[in-house]
Amino acid sequence: MADSLGKRPRPLPRPTPETRHFWDGTKAGELRLQRCNDCGHVYLPPRPLCPACSSRNVDVFTASGKGKLLSYVINHRPHPSFDGPYAIAVVELDEGPTMLSNIVDCDQTPDALVLDMPLEVTFEDNGDIAIPLFRPRESQS
């Protein structure tokens, strides 16, 4: 992603107590989700309660890091952290939750960015914070 980044770093998150496990995970090279021990619901973004059944009995687990391209736009307006047109994508993880991200190691064009293409997570080091991004993967893996 470094070559597609402009001069200024991307806006970085400021972790909060209930999201700390997620950002500790990205720093350790893991994509961490939460699962409800009562109803089994898997969710993101992090919360200390299950949004499906209100239970506080939830655990953190490491996800597969695999997903697919659910939808996207290709932004053509200038952004201080990005060069040229770039895609902002919604990724659907194999475990169910969706998340916003960028797609790297891939041309930022409609021809290259095909809906439902298999993706895998990769992490961009920004010092204290690692940002989860996604890149195309072979569908068999």
Binding site: P13, Y72, N75, V90, I131
Partner: peptide
């Protein structure tokens, strides 16, 4: 940037506000 969930989980990815976010489901 910031501590809200929006800032943490959508802010880093180059959102330009409504032009890039309102529109993101249309290809789907």
């Amino acid at each position: 940037g910031g501590g809200s969930l929006l800032a943490q989980f959508e802010g880093p990815y180059g959102s330009m506000g409504p032009t890039t976010m309102f529109t993101i489901g249309v290809l789907r």
